[in-house]
Design a protein around this nucleic acid. Sequence first.
DNA 1: CGGGCTCTTGAGAGCTCTCAAAATCGGTGG
DNA 2: CCACCGATTTTGAGAGCTCTCAAGAGCCCG
Lengths: 204, 204
Amino acid sequence: MNQAAAFARPASALRALGTVRHFAPEQALFREGDPAGHLMQILSGVVRSAFLRRDGRRYIEAFYASGDIFGMESGPHQARGVEAVCACSVVIYPRHGAEAASSQQVFAAMILGLRQAQDHARLLGRASAIEKTAAFLLEWSNRAGHGTLLTLAMTRADIADYLGLTVETVCRCLAQLSRDGVIDILSARCIRVVDLAALLALTS
Amino acid sequence: MNQAAAFARPASALRALGTVRHFAPEQALFREGDPAGHLMQILSGVVRSAFLRRDGRRYIEAFYASGDIFGMESGPHQARGVEAVCACSVVIYPRHGAEAASSQQVFAAMILGLRQAQDHARLLGRASAIEKTAAFLLEWSNRAGHGTLLTLAMTRADIADYLGLTVETVCRCLAQLSRDGVIDILSARCIRVVDLAALLALTS
DNA sequence: CGGGCTCTTGAGAGCTCTCAAAATCGGTGG
DNA sequence: CCACCGATTTTGAGAGCTCTCAAGAGCCCG
């Protein structure tokens, strides 16, 4: 999963083709239904890819953080909005140019994206609320490297919409994990993983 | 979604590199943890890609039918079993040879696979049992072309594990759709779609 | 015709959602 | 620096949806 970090370095060839842009929290990277002929790579910050259902509920397809490349699958598909979760910097390049310049890299990013989508589907399909919450913490624990201190950029609502739960259920699960001594909730956005093994045990 | 059919024709260049094999119902196309250095394309029949959780429950990641290409994402990832749902024929070729011969085609198949995985995740994340069931019927309705008569190769258990539901819930939802006049259950595996618009309305 | 598997239907339990309200946090202006 | 305000987070109580457990019906195959 942290293969993503590998893209940060050899991206220089790509980087030359792209333009760096900065976004404020909640700002849209592009509008729904944008022609979408471009790839993006996160330099810093966190971004979310979200759908809005007819019934008003939101589904967050993925969070993208430093090093992540995405946008390969966009096209005349379903409208999705990509927004900054916090202040972030992004490299944007035209899709076809990028593919030509570094198809190998784009290919690798797509395999990674495919695996992540499959993992996400498996998580949503067959997991209890507590398991989903544990998996979420584990995912960001891996992204953060080996430190046990997580600083979450997103709100509980973001987490809930990513896990297919409600805000209240996410809160209750986090409280449960805290009560069980698995995590330590320093503040709402700052969580220390106390018992990594217990989190792993909740993941299948 | 029926872009898949497009691969059936220009696949001849690929086909020359691969070997055609036939499988009996329930037979494994390869074992879990197989080196997995190959791509596969379905010629006929239906195949499923499944995980077994520690708690014994099963998760079906995807069904593959005629024309579908898969195997791009396999690697030292998570063990999954790929089995024939019914008697089927498959072309198998070494992954690297195939990539070299027709990277464009493999690339397109991966984009398709990525979108399908994302669609599946969205379905599992934010949909009621009845919506999931409707989406499943719609998916196979699209695959079957414009006819309204569906012949399902898989059992209710397969459908349930694909949708993240139980067998009983799938039965109840199908019965509900039948009672509402949306579908007509001719036999367990043979369903006629009576009101396509109603199915679409259940999909967001 | 019998046996086993799949499918269907019912009743009750459990988990998550909904609705509601209190507590906490972060930023703004005095 | 402090008080205030809105947004976010947390906690509680009850409802609803899906699951579990159970039994009957239908189907295929020997």
